[in-house]
Computed example of a mutant assay.
Amino acid sequence: MKKIILVLFGSISLLINGQIGNENISYSTGNFFMKANRPSTKEYIVDGSPYSNGDQFNKVIIKDYSKNVQDLRYNAYEDEMEFKNGDELFYANKENNLKIHFPTLNKTYKCFNYNYDGKSKLGYLVVLVDSPKYSFFKREKVELLRGEKSPNAYSKDANDYYAKEKDLYLVSKNNILFKFPKNIGEASEFFSVDKKEMESFVKSNKINFNKEIDMVKLVEFINK
Results as ranks from 00 to 15, higher is better:
K179C: 03
F178K: 00
K84R: 14
A163Q: 15
A36F: 05
E80N: 13
V7K: 15
V60T: 12
G118R: 13
L8E: 15
Y77L: 13
A92Y: 05
E82C: 09
V46P: 10
Y109P: 00
N93K: 10
N175V: 00
N68G: 03
P50R: 01
I213R: 14
F102T: 01
R146M: 06
R139P: 00
L15M: 12
V171K: 02
N183F: 03
I45C: 08
K35M: 10
V202I: 14
Y44A: 03
V142S: 00
F32M: 11
S188G: 01
D194R: 15
P132S: 02
F83L: 13
K35Y: 04
Q70C: 06
I16E: 14
L6Q: 05
R73Q: 01
A153N: 14
K59N: 11
K121V: 08
I207E: 07
L128M: 11
E165T: 09
E82Q: 12
G30L: 11
I184Q: 04
F209Q: 04
N174H: 04
N37T: 06
N17F: 12
K173A: 05
Q56F: 14
D214G: 04
A153T: 12
V60I: 13
Y51F: 12
P50G: 00
Y51W: 06
K119R: 14
V7W: 13
K138Q: 08
A76I: 01
L128F: 05
Y161N: 06
R38S: 05
N183E: 01
K99R: 10
L218Y: 10
G48R: 07
K84L: 11
L6T: 12
R38T: 05
N31D: 14
R38E: 10
N175Y: 01
K217T: 02
I61H: 12
V129E: 00
N175P: 01
K141C: 02
Q70P: 00
L98N: 09
S13E: 14
N53S: 10
K3N: 12
I100T: 13
A92C: 10
A187Q: 09
Y44W: 06
D160E: 07
S66H: 08
E88D: 12
D79L: 03
E165L: 14
K211L: 14
L145Q: 05
K42M: 11
K94Y: 06
S66Q: 05
K196G: 02
D55C: 09
L122I: 09
Q56I: 11
K156Q: 13
G18Q: 15
K107V: 07
I213W: 09
P39N: 07
N183H: 03
S172H: 02
L128D: 01
I176Y: 02
I100H: 07
E165S: 11
N223F: 08
M198R: 06
I100S: 07
Y161E: 04
D47Q: 15
N205M: 09
N113I: 12
